[in-house]
Design a protein around this nucleic acid. Structure first.
Lengths: 163, 163
DNA sequence: TCCGATCATCTGTCCAACCGACGATCTGTG
DNA sequence: CACAGATCGTCGGTTGGACAGATGATCGGA
């Protein structure tokens, strides 16, 4: 059942000039990951965003909503609705800060903590799915490199961009 | 006016539980690349999208607009306006296919070809900017791994996702 | 005590993606 | 040759989410 016409190259083959484009490669990889991860987060409130909130809260990065929003790169007004959904689903709780009553820390409920571990396991499989063409050793090296890049993102010097 | 309170960890430090999340790492890397690449494509019609069209056209992947749109992952109706902008800027030309008058092949004008090489050079610098924390050898390995992943994306077996 | 700043929330606006429809054109069948 | 179905490019409407500004509650310092 191969397509009868193979005169033109397949649609999923990347254009030659983009084969070494970092943005293109990252974009394709991320898209594939999102597709693979979609069933893992489709039943959680807020989808992938909801998972990120849960993970951040479990990491102690949710002392207040603004901090949480900035870390996850979403607008503060979006975070309101996202937390509404998660709270309504019983996964997180807004706990007022006794020392500063303006702030609401985001705490995981037991159900939220359980859900988080479930989703982490499923996302792990999605990740392995995308990384399948790499050997175990290659995966380690690749993820280490990614980790190095992300860890140093804050230290880049914007002046080297537009001389 | 530096923030007086540095008791809480910096906002740009990733939550611990996401440090090994492929989606998170790819997302942060891609965002950083887009920020670094933004000045390189801000003066081209259509921005980053416009560059992708140019690169695809130069790679001979633009026999018709639908093929182009599918390759780049944008909607076919979005491609119309994008090509309008690029054509109005004199970078590409819609050339009717003589054998099938429904199709319009996208051809680069001399100006478009020149602009493409300029932008490629600038994007190369943006890429090196993001990859700066890696040694030259690590960069090669990393890009090779990314290339391997993307080249095998079409071959993944969806059944291994939801057993 | 008072004034500016900060946090969470709400509201309105705007942009870009998605979906369906339409005319022009091609292909296959009788 | 006539016709039906499919394909390509285009247009229009709808919708969802991002973004900015305003508001009330609260904190910190003069």
């Amino acid at each position: 059942m191969t397509p009868s016409k193979t005169a033109t190259p397949a649609v999923d083959e990347p254009p030659a000039l983009l084969r070494d484009d970092l943005g293109w490669l990252c974009s394709k990889t991320l898209t594939a990951y999102r597709v693979a991860a979609e069933p893992a987060v489709e039943d959680i409130a807020g989808g992938m965003r909801g998972y990120l909130v849960l993970a951040a809260a479990a990491s102690g990065c949710a002392n207040n909503q603004l901090e949480l929003a900035q870390r996850l790169g979403v607008d503060r007004s979006v975070m309101v609705g996202l937390l509404d959904t998660l709270e309504h689903a019983g996964l997180v709780a807004r706990t007022p800060n006794p020392t500063d009553r303006r702030e609401r820390a985001i705490a995981l409920t037991p159900a939220g903590r359980k859900r988080l571990t479930e989703i982490q396991a499923r996302l792990q499989r999605a990740s392995e799915h995308v990384l399948a063409p790499l050997s175990a050793r290659q995966r380690d090296i690749f993820l280490n490199a990614l980790h190095t890049i992300v860890a140093n993102l804050g230290r880049i010097d914007p002046r080297t961009l537009c001389p």
